[in-house]
Write a protein that binds this DNA or RNA. Structure first.
Lengths: 327, 327
DNA sequence: CTGAAAGCGCTTACAG
DNA sequence: CTGAAAGCGCTTACAG
């Protein structure tokens, strides 16, 4: 059973391959009689014709693939949901989102040169060399969910804003001596730095002392050690954690030290993972509008491709605090 | 800056495209002089030549892409790690693993016909139509991590074995009245069913009453309701949960009902997520050897492609109990 | 040992 | 309105 080609469709419907191509691609500027059109469409359907992506790509120099480069972060529910949403959004535009987990093994250049994607969506930072090469190869690159992105067209979740929101929430609760619990994973460094900067800025703005920074592993003992340090000297009464997992480690540390949340120390996380609700006390956290982020990213890519997309929704409601028992 | 082609390399190094192709592909049965060989390789390097995947695919009818179809499961750390591992393993063989999140929106047929992958790795069940069509198109399909897979070459994690291990662990602790906590997500049904069957079989074998089955949502109240039901009549003293998240919901339910683990009710999960350690009490769970599973799957695919791969490692150590405080 | 040529399946100027 | 033909970049029989 060899592949059905456009030539087969042409022969079967008694027209030329040109006509088949025009009909199937709805090529603008051509007017094919409705009868021919129908006949071609029916034949294609009947034969189970699927255009060869390889041939199309070779001919046009561009594919229907959007390459999504996912950096070597600790994967999490947030990124999974984001990719799910993106897959759906691109599919609606006839584009296939293919996900490549960049583990730093292979040069990215090789991959995108080989795949010739229509666009690249980089969820993490690209090397300057890669970015430059892609741009000069005319492949639109939409990048990075970080702040300070050099490309204004790019959507960026203001990471610092997330931490500011945490600090504001804690300050509103009357806390003055705050701590920031960072993850140890160096792959998250780019995010962590921005969040910390945001926390510092918010503290300064609110006239609070600088937050006491400490790395917390996902171990009870690590959480406990952080808590001990934070309680020494002028005692910390509230902790903003990088994410819900780190927050749960802090909560576990408090428990191990015989302290209570929020009475002794309040804790707030980020992400609103399902387990945040199950914690004891239930974890206050910052919810992120992943769907809005996905829409923004997809719109950026589509706009860069010249698709006529509605402008992305306003970004002001990108995240908000979910109040639970831990603060 | 237009694309560097093999013709450019040929011209620059003063040989024909045939020779370039032979050298670059290490085509067996040809012997090119070491001098020419070096010259071609150097030129290719210098020009930054990357073969066009599209042209190659068009010409040979097969690509270097392994398409990994990830069904619409609740994504989790396990699947993420698995895909990470697979990416690395295939990359080592010059194959790019591209992940497609199947959300049931688009017919899968369209996708694989278009991409012409070298092989398809289906992590979930395929429709019979898809499977048949792929096979008749000569695309090797390796599928499904479930038991009872019709294709013996396929690696399958014995799902029932995981539940059996949980039951055995609880029984060894002296528990006789057991419950099984299933997730509500219908997308997990295929797994859930097999696990439940495994739990039942183990109970029967050990002379225990049938486990009391109940669905538990990731909500404290849902866990509490389950606990109330389990404690009515002959009280359940131990719960095997579908995964760590469900186990944590049961733990939260116990807490809400004023019961203690493991004194009143023991709980065991599956997956050993980082948060299992942070729970109070720390959660006993079943650890799965994801790397071994990835190796198996990759080997199955490579073997189907005729690669000469070492036989996968024995599967007997695919999972084991991690004992913590909750049992 | 190396080269000229065909052809994979498509799209798109260019004629008719 | 539709068709014949070129060409995207590669690989691989087939000659030399």
């Amino acid at each position: 059973m060899s592949r059905v080609t456009s030539a087969d469709v042409a022969r079967e419907s008694g027209v030329s391959r040109t006509t088949v191509s025009y009909v199937l691609n709805d090529t603008p500027g051509t007017s094919i009689s409705e009868l021919t059109r129908r006949r071609v469409l029916d034949t294609a359907e009947r034969l189970g014709y699927t255009p060869s992506a390889a041939a199309r790509t070779l001919r046009s120099g561009r594919s229907d693939v959007v390459l999504c480069v996912v950096p070597d972060w600790t994967a999490g529910p947030v990124i999974d949901t984001l990719i799910d949403d993106l897959t759906t959004l691109f599919a609606a535009q006839g584009l296939a989102l293919l996900v490549f987990n960049d583990r730093g093994n292979r040069p990215l250049t090789e991959l995108w040169r080989a795949v010739t994607p229509r666009a690249v969506l980089a969820l993490g930072p690209l090397t300057d060399a890669d970015a430059a090469a892609m741009r000069s190869a005319r492949i639109p690159v939409v990048g990075s969910t970080l702040d300070e992105d050099p490309h204004p067209e790019t959507f960026a979740v203001p990471q610092h804003g997330i931490a500011e929101l945490q600090v504001e929430h804690l300050a509103a609760r009357g806390h003055r001596v705050l701590a920031y619990a960072a993850p140890s994973d160096s792959r998250l460094a780019a995010f962590t730095e921005r969040r910390i900067a945001g926390a510092r800025a918010a503290c300064a703005r609110l006239g609070l002392p600088e937050p006491r920074l400490r790395t917390v592993e996902l171990e009870v003992e690590s959480g406990a050690a952080a808590v001990r340090e934070w309680r020494a000297g002028e005692p910390v009464t509230a902790v903003a954690a990088y994410n819900d997992e780190v927050a749960l480690a802090v909560l576990a540390g408090l428990r191990a030290e015989g302290l209570r949340a929020p009475e002794d120390v309040a804790v707030i996380g980020v992400d609103d993972i399902p387990l945040a609700r199950l914690a004891s006390p239930a974890l206050t956290t910052v919810w992120q509008a992943i769907d809005a982020q996905a829409e923004h990213l997809a719109s950026s890519v589509l706009a860069a491709l010249g698709h006529d997309v509605p402008p992305p929704r306003p970004t002001h409601e990108l995240f908000h605090v979910v109040e639970r028992a831990s603060t």
